[in-house]
Amino acid sequence: ELVLALYDYQEKSPREVTMKKGDILTLLNSTNKDWWKVEVNDRQGFVPASYVKKLD
């Protein structure tokens, strides 16, 4: 499943990933309501769920 980055996000820990507004990311896990695991540029990590939106 793919998600769209709604905002820029700068990683604050090694478990997170940086994304730019408009990026298309692969959603790996959305079981946590606050932090979703995504893959971007061959890196996996977490981003705030409120910063991304699922693409239909």
Rank of each mutant, 00 (worst) to 15 (best):
T31F: 09
V38Q: 00
S13D: 11
T26V: 15
W36Q: 01
K53I: 15
A49S: 14
D8N: 08
K21T: 07
D34Y: 15
N29A: 10
L28M: 08
R15K: 12
P48D: 02
S50G: 11
E39R: 12
G45I: 06
P48F: 03
E1K: 12
L6N: 03
W36H: 03
G45L: 05
L27W: 01
K33S: 12
T18E: 05
R43G: 04
K20E: 06
G22A: 03
V38T: 01
K20Q: 11
V38L: 04
Q44G: 08
W35I: 03
V38F: 00
V52D: 02
W36L: 05
V40Y: 13
Q10Y: 15
W35G: 02
L55F: 10
N32I: 06
V38G: 01
N32R: 10
T18D: 04
T26M: 13
R43D: 04
L55A: 05
T26C: 10
D56L: 10
L2E: 06
W35E: 04
K37D: 04
N32K: 07
N41Q: 12
R15E: 12
E1T: 14
T31I: 09
K53C: 13
T31H: 12
Y9F: 07
Y9G: 00
E39H: 08
W35C: 06
S13W: 06
K33D: 11
E16H: 06
D56C: 12
I24G: 02
P14L: 10
E1N: 12
E16Y: 05
E16I: 03
D8L: 02
G45A: 04
Y9S: 01
L6T: 04
R43E: 05
Y9C: 02
Y51H: 12
S13Y: 07
Y51R: 06
D23H: 05
W35L: 03
K53Q: 14
V38K: 01
V17Y: 04
N32H: 12
Q44E: 11
D56T: 13
L27R: 01
L25D: 00
V40N: 15
S30T: 10
P14M: 09
S30M: 09
A49P: 05
G45P: 01
G22R: 02
F46A: 02
P48Q: 02
D34E: 13
V52A: 02
S50K: 14
I24H: 05
E39Q: 15
V52E: 01
T26P: 15
R15V: 10
D23A: 08
L28N: 03
K20H: 11
R15M: 14
E16R: 04
Q10N: 14
Q44D: 07
N29Y: 07
S13E: 08
Y9T: 01
V40A: 14
E1L: 13
Y7E: 10
V40K: 15
P48K: 04
L28A: 03
V3T: 03
D42A: 10
A5P: 01
V40E: 03
V17R: 01
K12W: 04
V47N: 00
Y51E: 03
F46P: 00
L55E: 05
L25M: 14
K54L: 14
G22M: 03
T26I: 15
G22S: 03
A49L: 02
D56I: 11
T18M: 04
K21Q: 11
K54S: 07
S30F: 07
P48L: 03
L27M: 04
M19A: 03
V47D: 02
Q10L: 13
L25I: 08
E11V: 07
D42G: 15
L25C: 10
N32C: 09
D42F: 11
V52L: 15
D34I: 14
V3M: 07
D56A: 13
E16K: 04
M19C: 07
R15Q: 13
Q44R: 11
F46I: 07
D23Y: 05
V17P: 01
Q44T: 11
L27I: 06
N41Y: 13
T26S: 11
I24A: 03
E11P: 14
Y9W: 12
Q44K: 10
K12M: 11
